[in-house]
Design a protein around this nucleic acid. Structure first.
Lengths: 170, 170
DNA sequence: GATGGCCTACTCGGATAATGCATGTCCGAGTATCAGCGG
DNA sequence: CCGCTGATACTCGGACATGCATTATCCGAGTAGGCCATC
């Protein structure tokens, strides 16, 4: 229940690239020196960001990395998923079905639990997709611009309701 | 960004103890056989649950484990925190301050990021504290009983607003 | 027959290895630059 | 003087070790229950 330290590093990299307003790409060694982290490991992280499409790499002399999008278009969720893959906090080994083997409570409990964690995933995705790198760069942020405070959004609520509705039909 | 498989196992243990309505304690070997998991490792998990105060252990002959509370009083958050300690998804090594060293954006960005992840922690805590083991046991769950659908709760919102207000005063 | 003590078998409990994944490192593949040469 | 060609130095890129946390295991400490000797 902890996201890897690579996420922190990746975030810093993106921020650093965003604050460098020069259009020339930044070499990975330059970045690692700036952040005072291992050059080798940083390259590994850079690669993940490239694969995810957040930054672009320029090979050859005077090469380096640049942002692939504007800071407004890079969400926290993208950074996290670039490093860790899709968010899926619950490791389901189907163990719960055995706990319910007595049959009294059928598989309803399993469904409920799965929905709960599925919901947790969506909560996190929703949350992190709301803030962008640009939010971090604003010098003074007004309250209305605060990331992810739209608690009245109903997408998740509807999703769960639908799920449960189907179960209720049994 | 994944909670350990121990959480799944712990959840199953609690469910199993809850469904056993006999008042006599259940031996750990019995539980491990029932769930088909390693007896040794299960004991380690049991110990964590005991320390957290979710189950009580009875030593000696015919001993075993029983729930320390009623299923209604055991929340998902308690189970998770029993296994993994307090939820803290972001590993802060203070790296971001270096990314902002250019001074242009001051430490405002650091504050924003910390608030975001602090908020994520609270969202998860709030979410998991809303569902109880009893929710899993209900044979047919009505929509109004769904755990954690109170999206209009304002505790987190207020928290973040307060935080940002203080920053805005600078 | 009742009672006290002892012994045993069973339980949990903590110290001790093995595994898996994130972390960290190294060397090879590829390309833009630049110098030199020829036209 | 201009254009081509080759070497070169720099970049990224992926294969290879290391460390730590979770997972898994074993043996020891402690207790409730039963058995037996004694009163």
């Amino acid at each position: 229940m902890k996201l890897t330290s690579g996420v922190e590093q990746a975030t810093c990299i993106i921020v650093l690239l965003a604050t460098q307003d020069s259009r020339s790409p930044l070499a990975s060694d330059h970045i690692s020196a700036r952040l005072d982290v291992s050059p080798s490991y940083l390259k590994k992280i850079m690669r993940k960001l490239v694969v995810k499409g957040l930054v672009i790499s320029v090979p050859g002399n005077n090469g380096g990395f640049s942002l692939a999008k504007s800071p407004e278009q890079i969400t926290g969720l993208e950074i996290i998923e670039a490093m860790e893959g899709e968010i899926s906090i619950f490791s389901d080994n189907g163990l719960l079905t055995k706990a319910f083997e007595d049959g009294i409570h059928a598989s309803q409990g399993v469904e409920v639990l799965n929905n709960i964690f599925k919901g947790a995933n969506d909560v996190l995705k929703d949350y992190f997709s709301k803030f962008t790198v640009a939010d971090l760069l604003k010098k003074s942020m007004s309250l209305s611009e605060l990331p992810s405070l739209d608690w009245n959004n109903t997408s998740l609520k509807d999703f769960l309701k639908k799920e449960m509705k189907e179960n209720a039909d049994d």
